[in-house]
Every structure is written in C-alpha cells, then in structure tokens.
C-alpha cells in the first residue's frame, strides 16, 4: 500500500473545500451557507496542519489553526445571532428575501 504523505491530506482538504464552496454557492438557507463556511475553514485548517507536519515550517501551522478555530467560533456565534435576527424581522432565513437594502 502506498505510503501516506502530504498530498493525501491535501486531496482530502481539497474535496472538503469544494464541498463547502458548493454549499455556499447553492444554498439560499442562511444557516446552510454558514455550514459551508465552516467546511471551508476546516479544510484550511487541515492544510495548515498537514504542512506543519510534513514541511519544515515547524509548529507555526498549528498556532494558525488554533486562531482559525477561535475566529470560526466567534463567526458562528455572531452569524447565527444575525440569522436569528433576520428570522425575527423577515420570518424567513431565505437570503434572497432579505433585500431591503437593495434598490
């Protein structure tokens, strides 16, 4: 069996990224879009850790990944609060219904 190397992890993270991007592009549901963003952040983290392990950059990748997780937590809290606010105002979370600012 082939030895597992850097490119294996990169392929997995590429697929996860593309799935997240598809999620963001096609969902009209605001929470679905947020979940796609979580997937994208996860794939970025996987890349950080893979390079931290297999290349000569040391543990910097792990530190970056921690900060990414921290920002993702803040983003999810604020994002979901905004989604709930949109739901209270528009009684839907379809992102195409929230066009009050559009001319």
């Amino acid at each position: 069996m082939m030895e597992i190397g850097l490119s294996h992890f990169l392929v997995v993270s590429t697929i996860v990224f593309l799935a997240g991007m598809f999620c963001v592009l096609t969902r009209r549901n605001a929470i679905g879009i947020l979940m796609g963003v979580e997937l994208i952040l996860n794939s970025a983290n996987l890349n950080y850790l893979a390079f931290a392990r297999y290349s000569s950059v040391g543990y910097d990748g792990q530190m970056f990944a921690i900060f990414v997780i921290m920002l993702a937590a803040a983003e999810a809290a604020i994002g979901l609060a905004i989604v709930l606010g949109i739901y209270q105002t528009f009684h839907t979370i379809d992102v195409e219904a929230t066009d009050t600012l559009r001319l």
Partner: peptide, 30 residues
C-alpha cells in the same frame, strides 16, 4: 469548539427557525 460549541449552536438555530424545514427555503440560488 466545533462539535461541542458551533454544531450545537447550529442545531439550536435550526430548531429556533421553525420554517427552515420547508423544502422551498433550502432550494438552489444559482
């Protein structure tokens, strides 16, 4: 953080926005 925090928050949000289950809401944008 993710499974214990963000995911639980997401599930809460899904349950709090009750009409989210409608198929018409989760259909495609582009």
């Amino acid at each position: 953080v993710y499974v214990g925090g963000i995911l639980v928050l997401t599930l809460f949000a899904i349950n709090l926005t009750s009409r989210i289950g409608d198929v018409s809401i989760s259909n495609r944008s582009i």
